[in-house]
């Protein structure tokens, strides 16, 4: 196996609103953004599968697992949870100029974070987040780092001697790929079962470091971050109301039955 420096895995994690509290999420009609105040955050569930994969590789081959996240400073406890699961250290990329970043701007910032960390073998991400669900950041990040990218990964076997076998889910089956690090991989939940946070992990996490970096340290071109650096513009956001459609059918009992039958057929119920 390569030396410790080369056996480093970066895991990108995103704090997202806990789905158990989604009923409390509302929309700000003026800014067209979601109001997330008072809603507890969790690690994006798929990112936990990415972290589990990184931890398994480290447990088997040694090395280091570094968490990387772009989020406001209040996200630090979420990173602490990743450290409690077993990651070695965390980097939080936090700067007011990052606010409003779309997927491309986020990828620019994360790529700068990866370069700041130095050499690495693997970048692991969840395939998508449960709040944005764009599934774009991982590929954009790979492009900006000029690295290969495999999405929809359901199997990951890191062997000795810089070889890995990757199973990728495609529409009607799976593809087995061989790859050489460094590589950017995004994972599906079928990949593994993330470990539970242990109490010894919680205690150990208390002495692990979370480096908070602003754009001063990262030096990303200001035209590539925040709202200015985001080519995606929200055209509109509206809340959908889910209501049962109601319709009154009149006429004689025979006509009502006939009308009902037609509707039942039309909607494909029978």
């Amino acid at each position: 196996m390569a030396d410790k420096e080369m056996n480093r895995t970066i895991v990108c994690i995103k704090p997202v609103p806990d789905p158990k509290h989604w009923n409390k999420v509302s929309m700000d009609p003026d800014t067209q953004t979601l109001r997330r105040e008072g809603i507890p955050g969790i690690i994006n569930p798929l990112d936990k599968h990415a972290l589990e994969a990184a931890l398994s590789i480290r447990d088997a081959h040694g090395g280091e697992v570094v968490l990387l996240s772009m989020a406001p400073p209040f996200a630090a406890p979420i990173l602490r949870e990743g450290l409690a699961m077993g990651a070695d250290r965390a980097i939080l990329l936090s700067d007011p100029v990052f606010a409003g970043s779309d997927t491309l701007a986020t990828a620019h910032i994360l790529a700068a974070g990866c370069r700041w960390i130095g050499e690495f073998d693997l970048v692991l991400c969840g395939n998508m987040t449960i709040d944005g669900s764009t599934a774009q950041v991982c590929s954009q990040l790979a492009e900006l780092l000029d690295l290969p990218n495999v999405m929809h990964v359901t199997g990951l076997d890191r062997q000795a001697g810089d070889k890995m076998t990757i199973t990728q889910k495609i529409e009607h089956g799976h593809v087995r790929l061989e790859a050489k690090p460094p590589i950017v991989i995004s994972v599906r939940k079928e990949l593994n079962k993330p470990r539970y946070t242990s109490f010894t992990g919680i205690l150990a996490a208390e002495s692990k470091t979370i480096d908070v970096l602003s754009n001063k340290e990262l030096g990303v071109d200001p035209n590539h971050v925040g709202l200015n650096g985001s080519p995606t513009k929200m055209a509109g956001l509206e809340l959908r109301e889910f209501k049962r459609a109601r319709e009154r059918v009149g006429g004689s009992p025979e006509e009502i039955v006939q009308a009902l039958l037609e509707k039942i057929h039309r909607y494909g119920i029978i």
Binding site: R80, E81, T197, S198, F199, I202, A205
Partner: peptide, 15 residues
């Protein structure tokens, strides 16, 4: 404490 809150979250997830 933050430790106790993390502990609660960890047990809740397991349970």
């Amino acid at each position: 404490s933050e430790r106790e809150e993390m502990l609660r979250k960890a047990v809740r997830e397991f349970a």
